[in-house]
C-alpha cells in the first residue's frame, strides 16, 4: 500500500535490497537511463510475448520476440525470436491465436533458462511494449516465481502513448482503435503476420517511431515524455 508513495527509483532500491538471487541483483543494480535523457540517446528494447492466456499468475509465456532501437533507429541485427516450453499443455483457445502448438513448443527452452537472457537484454535499457499488462505482468510473475523479486524497468507502452497523442487530437478514441493492428493501419505501416512475437515487436517499434514523430516540439522528446 505504501508503494504508491514511493517513486520508481525508491521502489527499485528497495527491491534490490531485498533481492536474494544474483541474477536479479545484477538486473536491479544496473544503471537505469535518467528520465531527462533524450529518447534517441537511450537504448530501447521492443518486446512482445505470445502467451497461453491473459493471466500472468496462471498462464505461461510461449514465445518472445525483441528488437532494439538505438540512436532512434530500429536495428534488425538485434532481432531475436524464441519459443519457450510451457510446463502445461497449450490451451486450444490460445493456440488459435498464436498458432503455436505443443509439438512446436516442446522445442523451446524452459522459461527458467530463457529468463536470465531476457533480463540481460533489458538490463539498463528501456522496455517498449504494446499493452504493458502482458509483458510487465508475465515478466514480473516469472521473476517473482524464479527469483522471489519483482521485475522493474522504465517502460514505454505504445497503447498508452497512442491514446495520449491521438486523443489529444481526435477527442475520444474507442479501445478497439488502439489495438496494434488498427494503429498500424492508421499510420500506414507495413503489415506483418500478426500474433508472432517478433513481428509484433517490430510492429511495436515502428509504431513507436511513428508516434514519437508526432510529439511536438520536435527533436527534444525526453524519456519522461514517453515512459509510463
Amino acid at each position: 500500500m505504501w508503494n504508491y508513495f514511493l517513486n520508481r527509483e525508491q521502489l527499485r532500491k528497495r527491491a534490490l535490497k531485498n533481492a536474494t538471487s544474483e541474477i536479479m541483483r545484477d538486473f536491479l543494480a544496473a544503471q537505469v537511463p535518467p528520465d531527462t535523457a533524450r529518447w534517441d540517446d537511450v537504448e530501447i528494447v521492443a518486446l512482445d510475448f505470445e502467451t497461453t492466456g491473459l493471466k500472468p499468475q496462471i498462464d505461461q509465456i510461449l514465445s518472445y520476440g525483441k528488437v532494439h532501437i538505438k540512436d532512434g533507429v530500429i536495428k534488425l541485427s538485434s532481432a531475436r525470436h524464441e519459443l519457450i516450453r510451457p510446463d502445461k499443455p497449450i490451451p486450444e483457445a490460445s493456440a488459435i491465436i498464436h498458432h503455436i502448438t505443443d509439438d512446436q513448443a516442446i522445442n523451446g527452452r524452459p522459461i527458467a533458462q530463457v529468463l536470465p537472457e531476457l533480463l540481460e537484454y533489458l538490463s539498463g535499457k528501456v522496455m517498449l511494449v504494446h499493452y504493458n499488462k502482458i509483458e510487465q505482468g508475465f515478466l514480473n510473475a516469472a521473476c517473482e516465481k524464479h527469483y522471489g523479486s519483482p521485475f522493474m524497468i522504465p517502460t514505454i507502452d505504445t497503447l498508452v502513448l497512442a491514446r495520449r497523442i491521438l486523443t489529444h487530437r481526435n477527442h475520444t478514441l474507442p479501445t478497439n482503435r488502439l489495438r496494434l493492428f488498427n494503429l498500424q493501419a492508421d499510420f500506414k505501416l507495413p503489415r506483418y503476420k500478426a500474433h508472432n512475437a517478433l513481428n509484433d515487436a517490430i510492429s511495436t517499434a515502428e509504431l513507436f517511431l511513428a508516434l514519437e514523430a508526432l510529439i511536438t516540439p520536435k527533436d527534444s522528446t525526453l524519456l519522461k515524455d514517453l515512459i509510463l
Binding site: I202, L209, K218
Partner: peptide, 14 residues
Amino acid sequence: LTQNLEIRYIRRGE
C-alpha cells in the same frame, strides 16, 4: 542484408 537493415521513420515535412 535484411539482418543488417535499420528502420527509420521520417515525418512529413522533415
